[in-house]
């Protein structure tokens, strides 16, 4: 098939009303909210532990637990959102489900590996990561609500694909992670698709996932680039 002759609008066979209605039923009847609530609380709690710098078991394990938790969220979205809910509307939903499932499995794998030593250089990407996490947990839902989206149609971290993708990008910049390069593409691709979908459906917030992806990408390169100093104005790889 000549895929390149298709525009984004040709590949979205539903209206914004239908999409929001599907989200509403998924949140209320498909346990979307039931998953999103505990996921958000757990992520916040673990992030507080992680940022606190304490040496107790939970604080030390928080990076792994955060990765494992987000991995479970990706697996949940693959099955409950794309395979169960969206597949009735979109023929490509199962492809997306496979992508999200793969991301979930890689996140779980990364959580099982020992984290690398944290590189003290270049702190700004970590600040970017925290910003993305705030956007994912609170900012995006609040912005959606402020633009008149019905509360039941709003996606949340843990159950909605876009906040979960943005939040995961934030975690990858904040946490010491192995396999990070393998964890980046799927959230970035989803943010790109989410932006295109939002534009087709006339969502006023359609640039948000695209901006988050761009910022995350910059942060990622920043994290893997040594800062310049007085004697060396070039950038060398950090060796990660």
């Amino acid at each position: 098939m000549d895929w390149f002759s298709y525009g984004p609008a040709d590949l979205v066979p539903f209206s914004s009303e239908t999409w929001l209605g599907l989200f509403g039923r998924y949140n209320q009847e498909g346990l979307g909210w039931v998953v999103a609530g505990p996921a958000t609380v757990l992520v916040l709690g673990l992030l507080v532990r992680f940022a606190g710098g304490r040496t107790d078991w939970l604080s030390r394990a928080s990076p792994r637990l955060l990765l494992a938790l987000s991995g479970c969220c990706w697996l949940w979205i693959a099955w409950a959102f794309f395979h169960q809910a969206v597949s009735t509307l979109l023929w490509a939903a199962d492809w997306l489900a496979w992508g999200f499932a793969a991301q979930g499995l890689v996140l779980l794998t990364a959580a099982s590996l020992l984290p690398p030593a944290r590189d003290p250089a270049n702190r700004w990407p970590r600040v970017v990561g925290w910003g993305l996490i705030v956007v994912a947990l609170i900012g995006a839902p609040l912005l959606a609500w402020s633009t008149g989206q019905p509360p039941q149609g709003i996606g949340w971290f843990g159950s909605g694909p876009t906040p979960t993708a943005v939040g995961t990008l934030g975690l990858l910049l904040v946490l010491p992670v192995r396999l990070g390069w393998l964890l980046l593409p799927v959230p970035l691709i989803w943010c790109l698709l989410a932006g295109m979908l939002g534009q087709v459906l006339h969502d006023p917030l359609w640039p948000l996932p695209l901006m988050c992806a761009l910022v995350a990408l910059l942060g990622w390169f920043g994290m893997h680039t040594r800062p310049s100093n007085n004697t060396n104005h070039g950038c060398a790889p950090s060796g990660h």
Partner: peptide, 13 residues
């Protein structure tokens, strides 16, 4: 029926 009848299981629609 493009878009207009792709409404999934929404009973009202």
């Amino acid at each position: 029926t493009w878009i207009t009848f792709n409404i999934g299981e929404d009973p009202d629609a």
